[in-house]
Amino acid sequence: MTEKFVTAAQLMGQVLGAEGYPFIVTEHPFSSATTDELGARARRVAHTCGDHLLRPRST
């Protein structure tokens, strides 16, 4: 989700019965961003993906 739509995503989570649904936030907008900028965002998002898709590791 881009940062300008965080409250919309939170509200949609609520209205769909999934309050607190976790999502990753990245910069807005996409449409005018360069390919390099999008690549950098994808790298940061990918770092965080593990936190969302994987079970927490026990230490």
């Binding site: 907008p29 996409f30 449409s31 005018s32 961003a33 390919t35 999008l38 690549g39 965002r41 994808a42 790298r43 998002v45 990918a46």
Partner: peptide
């Protein structure tokens, strides 16, 4: 439009 290049990178 912008999602294509982002998802390529992701």
């Amino acid at each position: 439009q912008g999602t294509v290049r982002f998802f390529d990178a992701l």
